[in-house]
Write a protein that binds this DNA or RNA. Structure first.
Lengths: 148, 148
DNA sequence: TTCGTTAGTCAAGTTTCTTGACTTTCCTTG
DNA sequence: CAAGGAAAGTCAAGAAACTTGACTAACGAA
């Protein structure tokens, strides 16, 4: 319909693994955020939700979060601030290092985690079905290798 | 070394396809941007570079870009503004629709495109080698399916 | 020919993230 | 066991990325 659309041949030139990965990641993220929001955990729609994606029931130091998320410590700090205000996360002093503070899930955060895990399982099951079990496993393996 | 690191078991709970995809996409993007910057095309380090990733030698309407990139038309407009100032891209009136403007590559933009394509081929070749030909093809196929 | 829709622009504001300067604690190493 | 560099975190300011709202001009169907 749209005159400005390119033909397939051009797409072949432009498209590449990078874009495909990017689109797939984006899709996953917005799907997850939407499902969580529908269940009463709306913060996944914002950048702060990214923090939770890296946070397990054991908590983590802010420093470790910074490394995982690949952004400045100040940025992480600000995102954690937001989650702290929402009472999803809490900062507790690290018993072994007086400089550090551990980021832990509150009760609400723990419920968020459990829900997130259920949603994850559901979405993954859907992916598994769409791709087939073998292809899904191959996808995971390939991504793991590329992320080494 | 870092006391705050979780053990593998926890990671298994937290990690999922979403994060893996996101990390892989991020890696690709920063790799590409770095290589292009090293070759004299630094704008790929900024958000404006994303526009070029969707732009082929035939150009595109701003509207089409908006759809592809999944952001507001105003955001795209601003990114295109930046590339226009850098003389990578130029807006030309659409011959068949006086409201529309086509985004086209300038000579510099065309050189950028060619270089981008070379870099893409090199990185993909590396990925192909790391994963093996079959796994690489399977990855592409899986991503294509998920992006449907 | 009117009227709803579409492409694009302009302006203003929000969100997201970075850089710089600082404090406190840790951990060498001489 | 000091002294000094490195690490964790904070505060403040600002830049970058993106959104929403209001508008203009052209399109296109009833």
């Amino acid at each position: 319909m749209d005159r400005a659309e390119e033909k397939g041949s051009d797409l072949a030139v432009i498209d590449h693994v990078g874009i495909a990965l990017w689109r797939a990641a984006r899709r996953w993220r917005s799907r997850m955020a939407a499902e969580m929001a529908a269940r009463g955990y709306p913060w996944h729609q914002s950048a702060a939700g990214e923090v939770l994606a890296h946070l397990g029931p054991d908590g983590l130091s802010q420093r470790a979060l910074t490394e995982r998320m690949g952004m400045s410590k100040q940025a992480v700090q600000q995102l954690v601030d937001q989650l702290e205000v929402l009472d999803v996360v809490r900062r507790v002093p690290d018993p072994t290092d007086k400089r550090a503070r551990r980021i832990e899930l509150t009760e609400l955060g723990a419920r968020d985690f459990a829900e997130r895990n259920r949603v994850k399982v559901r979405i993954e099951a859907e992916y598994r079905q769409r791709l087939g079990e073998d292809a899904f496993k191959a996808l995971l393996a390939a991504l793991a290798e590329l992320n080494t």
